[in-house]
Amino acid sequence: MIDLLGYAAFFLSTALIFGLIALGLNLQWGLTGLFNVGIAGFVAIGAYTSALLTTPAVADRIGGFGLPIAVGWLGAMVLAGAAAALTGFATLRLKADYLAITTFGVAVVAQLVALNAVGLTGGPFGVAFIPRPFGALADHPVLFNFSNFAVVLAVTAVTYLALQHLTKSPWGRVLRALREDERAAVSLGKSARSYRIQAFAAGGAVMGLAGAVQAHLIGFIAPDDYVPTLTFQVWAMLMVGGSGSNRGALAGAVVVWAVWVGAGALTAALVPTEFQARAAALQIVAIGVMLCVILLARPQGFFGPTRRKAKPGGGDA
């Protein structure tokens, strides 16, 4: 029973971290209509930045500054946000698709750096011994899981409230205006490109923060954690939850993660070991098909705004 509670806390922590990434994506896509297929890249930037800032010094790799966790998280947000700002700066005066292609490239390059820049990122072996909040409690698994969950919950709550506030602020209204009717907004003297870069950078920063929080939750990161499947899961979460709604992003994350974990446990229990890799592939097929079906049948998601038809993708298209 106690174990089960501990697992529940761990499950919810992971789900909420996904929710955090989905919140970042919702700011970029749901609110601003900016397409990001390189989510895994921005999450990786955040995770590695925080890991390098906070781990104890090691001989064979740069970094290991042993700084406090909070500094690592801040660094993660700054660097991931800067990468997003740069991406936006290069592409947002062009057609919307160019942003998508470039974010895809960011993810590819982040993966390459994680895998090959051994002196910086540890290469395929990743970075270990990332300090964990409440690491002193590690002897009491349940207490440890719950305190970690409390940290994740607090970060998610603060981010959620901040984003809710931003959405309703004049800044958020400009973003919505740009999405709904760019010409009208521009005629009121709002620079479309500058606002979009800001939103894209802020969303990237949230994704970086999520990566950092997860790195410190697990205590170990490796390039395999940041493959395109991650990007894909987060998109599925936002689409299920309904883009445009912060609450939907969080709810979608919990629902999709539960389905994902459940399906994984089911295949592990039912499928013989030699077919497990194949079953895992089929799991991704299912999510891909689901994403397409949602796009076809219910583009506003299940928790999406129903009052007014959400119209993402106004963008530059």
Binding site: L282, I284, P299
Partner: peptide, 18 residues
């Protein structure tokens, strides 16, 4: 909505590959 088509191609890509 052209960008929705891009997203669908992304989902289809993942499904086809897997």
């Amino acid at each position: 909505q052209s960008i929705i088509v891009v997203m669908a191609s992304f989902g289809a890509s993942m499904a086809l590959r897997s």
